[in-house]
Design a binder for these strands. Structure first.
Lengths: 192, 192
DNA sequence: AATTTCATGTAACCAGTTACATGATTCA
DNA sequence: TGAATCATGTAACTGGTTACATGAAATT
């Protein structure tokens, strides 16, 4: 079985960033350090090896900017293969395990789908997202019902937190969906 | 600088579990596989090495159960040192980085504080939690305000998600706090 | 002149993943 | 008898962490 090239969430984040504008490693670090993308590590020990991997897999290509000067920089941009790989990840169906273990990755995908595939694809994604999240909420409610009545309140409250959290996710998605659908009769989708 | 013995979230989860009742590796796996604790990996490649680490650090002690039989099991229980280490983690102040990067760990701590240190400590924890979460909400709102007006809606919606998420966290904590505080005066009243 | 920022990296370490492996026991 | 479950582990791999290292350019 061939290994998926964009394995980790960090790789996806970097790939998506570069898709929007060519970046150097330092640029990527700055974005992670100063924007809400700060949920990702900006440490050089994470960024530079990740860039190397993506380059080795042929998903991004680096060209040396300011070559002659004493302070050159590697600027990476997406290759055709990279764009293809990114799209493949973005249109992948939303699975139960994703909502349980990789919510952050799903949020990344949401933003990147919007920016690169346009409104329709985003709406499709959101519908799948809502479906899976709501299914998981039902599962959690089941757990809640199966707590023996003498359980100390803390475990119950902890589970409450999970429930609220996922309900909120579904609600956010439904709202976003409404917003995108009504605000879009005029449609300005993205391009290739 | 001495390394913290309960480094990873998984280690904390295991330690907390064993604190409530002695467990074998298999027991731990079952809990992770069948309860809302399923956010942690139940794979043997994660559990057994983690148990070894905890044992090596002297935080848990294993005794062989059903020794003579052909299917013995290692049952681990907390050592005094382990209980101390657990408490140290639990009463550690809630820092900004925790709410950004280790929310799952904070939720674990919440439940374990309740079960092992009681109501007062839990309330203190929740107060700190609310404080840090709300501070972070303000920070995120700042980001939102600084979006240039021509930003495509998707990034904005992504940030929305984060905002809602953290607001919900704060709200959950405030509710839990109210519930615990009033439930303690009458001493019996569960919250609605 | 000193500090900060730009810019790129490496090395040792740690922990989790997947997949594999073994063998007893219980139950259909 | 064969499947599921009990019970414990290992090995190779992956990727992220911390800390270290280098040096030019811009700013104060």
């Amino acid at each position: 079985m061939k290994k998926e090239p964009t394995g980790s969430t960090l790789s996806l984040a970097i790939l998506g960033l570069i898709a929007q504008a060519p970046c150097s490693g330092y640029d990527v670090r700055k974005v992670f350090a100063t924007t809400p993308m700060g949920h990702f590590s900006a440490s050089p020990g994470a960024i530079y090896p990740a860039l190397k991997r993506l380059e080795k897999d042929g998903l991004i290509g680096g060209t040396v900017d300011r070559a002659q000067t004493l302070r050159p920089r590697q600027v990476y941009s997406l290759t055709a293969k990279g764009r293809k790989a990114l799209c493949d990840v973005l249109v992948r169906p939303v699975r139960r395990e994703d909502v349980i273990w990789h919510m952050d990755q799903l949020m990344l995908r949401f933003v990147f789908i919007g920016n690169t595939l346009g409104r329709k694809a985003t709406c499709d994604f959101l519908k799948e997202f809502v479906r899976e999240v709501e299914a998981y909420v039902v599962e959690l409610q089941g757990h809640m019902g199966r707590f023996p009545p003498d359980t100390p309140p803390y475990a119950r409250l902890g589970l409450q937190h999970g429930l609220h959290s996922y309900r909120m996710n579904a609600q956010w998605a439904r709202r976003a969906l409404r917003g995108l659908q009504e605000g879009s009769e005029g449609d300005k989708g993205a391009e290739a």
